[in-house]
Design a protein around this nucleic acid. Structure first.
Lengths: 209, 209
DNA sequence: CCGTCTACTGGACTCGCGGTACAGTCAGCC
DNA sequence: GGCTGACTGTACCGCGAGTCCAGTAGACGG
């Protein structure tokens, strides 16, 4: 039928993950039934359990997929920021602007974050998921902190700042912004918060303006 | 047995809500079964459904209880800040410090937020819940914006700031901080973010220091 | 051409949980 | 003494997760 590039099943697995992601972002993990997923993918229940031994394995697969996409998108974004401006501070500020625009331009209003979706789920499957989640956040922290250290060499901040906390602030605002966006049904919350964060970073490293 | 102050059932209802809140914060709403709640409260299923016609009504009751508590706690906190310092900026900054300390001193590491717990749930019951949630957030926004306007009269900010967004930033950091706290299993994330927010507000209104 | 492996289909069945229905109970109040 | 509020107890339904297992179509290798 379609392409039969690598394995036959890889394609089905990928389709399950894609369908599941859309459903979970729209209705939450608990609110998404397997029956519903397989109906959309066009397979049977047995087919589903051939690929994932249970629902938590599905969640794990979704997280891995999500984090990989996430990493690629973020890399591209801040790379573009640096391409447009080779000063580490201004490259970062451009990256943040692009980041805000990305969230502003998202089609379906409020996508939400898979990670957060899982963070507020029950314990059992969270052992594994939480580890993945944790790694994802820690990657952000490291990436941003290293950037701040680079920036600080050129623009020494007037007052001392905890770079780890400042790095975490980005992820915090994204997660919180998505939550507020959902609550208020207003997708402009998150981009505005990112831009405020941008102002904050700018103030810290280059004073007033 | 105990007090029989108002009605007999008010006490039971309250106990259901209290038990449910603890369970939901620990395991998520979907992960909390009615059977489990009634076992702990010591009533039967019929008794439960006498008080709440379904699980979404329970959620609604929990939200109302939660928002009421929230309002009281916040009022007290910022009132204390103002009592200690009658300048609107410094009173607010003290309030934020108390706020951060409150989260730092919480016993069970990461309590999470009921509101966020529900924000990532499925659609159906969310119509009602979302409205409550929305009202809660909007109340924060108004409260903080009014405060910023008061502060700005005395400390005109160097650059123009969107007070609504700056107000939302507090709620955003709280929600996001709770999410990150859960993911990283680190309850120090949220207080640190609040203190960063405090620094930001201070920089906006009184420049460097 | 045969056997094996992958990627499923089909169907039957279990269990937990949300939710319904409804009859009965018991204590307090007018 | 009857009504109401706050339940108990039991039986039942449907949905969704998950299990078991038998069968099969197609690719692939010898």
């Amino acid at each position: 039928m379609l392409e039969k590039s690598r394995r036959k099943g890889d394609d089905t697995r990928e389709r399950i993950l894609a369908v599941a992601e859309a459903a979970v972002l729209a209705k939450g993990f608990a609110g998404t039934s397997i029956d519903e997923i397989i109906a959309e993918v066009g397979i049977t229940k047995s087919g589903f359990f051939y690929h994932f031994k249970d629902k938590s394995e599905l969640a794990k697969g979704m997280m891995l997929r999500y984090l990989a996409q996430d990493r690629v998108v973020l890399d591209q974004l801040f790379q573009r920021g640096d391409d447009l401006n080779n000063d580490p501070l201004h490259g970062f500020l451009v990256g943040l602007k692009l980041f805000a625009e990305m969230f502003a331009d998202l089609p379906g209003a409020h996508p939400g974050c898979l990670a957060a979706s899982f963070a507020y789920q029950d314990q059992p499957f969270n052992r594994d998921i939480r580890a993945l989640n944790s790694d994802g956040i820690l990657a952000w922290r490291t990436r941003f902190r290293e950037r701040f250290e680079m920036i600080a060499e050129i623009y020494p901040p007037k007052q001392k700042v905890d770079f780890d906390a400042l790095a975490d602030m980005a992820a915090t605002l994204v997660e919180g912004g998505l939550v507020l966006g959902r609550m208020l049904n207003d997708s402009s919350v998150l981009p505005k918060q990112i831009l405020l964060y941008r102002d904050f970073v700018q103030m810290i490293f280059s004073g007033g303006k």
